[in-house]
């Protein structure tokens, strides 16, 4: 007879958390009022969508989307460059390794967290009200979007840099600013470049839908066709967008591989 070691007891978290998660799931599904008979009724309308969706009008899409698509790409380029440029100094203030003042560290960190909680489309809605409908609002929204992501990624990278070079710079009598410039900045620059390309990809994806709230780009065309349920015009636009997004992503992955 072998003695099998006893199974470890389930933790407190698992005992309470799992049933709670299960109950919460059931509750959530109830709350989204899934009604099967309504669903079946609506399913009969599916032809409104599926038929035109699979009969795309390519010619129309070619003629009407190219300028809006260019606008989308320009929004993404401008916003990711500005956003990351602002985030670069901010994330040094929002890292414990380079900001010795606890109070200002806390302020910068919570500012970045606050910006990150607001979804990109909410920013876009607010900026369309503030600066008017058009691509400028979209650029501002994506600046906030990329600022938040870059701030978080980069400040966490700065937190985990090798302290050796900073100590060496300090030992030679450098001031705090000089230490940061000569020994912390060069350590994170490769990461910064990689994150920048990653954020550029995210911005391209995000800028496609900005137009739904009037913030410029190809989403504007999607929105007008969507209202008239012209799915035969929407489906080629979506395919074109996907192709462009994937192309740009491949390009950015290629650059990232070459740089790192």
């Amino acid at each position: 007879m072998i003695n099998i070691p006893p199974k470890p007891k389930a933790s407190y978290l698992a005992k309470i958390g799992l049933p709670f998660a299960f109950m919460f799931s059931i509750f959530s599904f109830n709350m989204i009022d899934f009604n099967f008979s309504d669903f079946q009724n609506n399913l009969q309308n599916r032809k409104i969508v599926t038929e035109p969706l699979f009969n795309p009008k390519w010619q129309w899409a070619w003629d009407n989307t190219s300028s809006a698509l260019l606008e989308t790409i320009q929004i993404a380029i401008l916003a990711s460059i500005i956003g990351c440029a602002i985030a670069l100094p901010l994330s040094f203030y929002a890292s414990r390794a380079t900001n010795l003042n606890k109070f200002s560290y806390f302020l910068y960190k919570s500012f970045l967290n606050l910006v990150r909680t607001i979804p990109d489309l909410f920013w876009a809605m607010m900026f369309t009200v503030a600066v008017g409908i058009g691509p400028f609002a979209g650029v501002l929204a994506l600046v906030m979007f990329s600022l938040a992501i870059m701030g978080k990624l980069l400040s966490e990278t700065i937190d985990s840099i090798d302290p050796g070079p900073m100590e060496a710079a300090k030992a030679t009598g450098a001031s705090h600013n000089q230490t940061v410039f000569t020994s912390a900045l060069p350590q994170v620059l490769p990461n910064f470049t990689a994150y920048f390309l990653y954020i550029f990809e995210l911005c391209i994806r995000a800028s496609v839908i900005l137009g739904l709230v009037g913030a410029g780009g190809v989403g504007r065309i999607i929105e007008t066709q969507r209202i008239f349920l012209r799915f035969d015009r929407i489906s080629p636009i979506i395919v074109i967008i996907l192709a462009v997004v994937i192309l740009i992503e491949q390009f950015s992955v290629w650059i990232r591989k070459r740089i790192l």
Binding site: I75, L78, I81, V139
Partner: peptide, 11 residues
């Protein structure tokens, strides 16, 4: 790239 984008978007 940023100048080109800014000009294209009339910013």
């Amino acid at each position: 790239a940023s100048l080109w984008s800014a000009a294209g978007l009339e910013i």
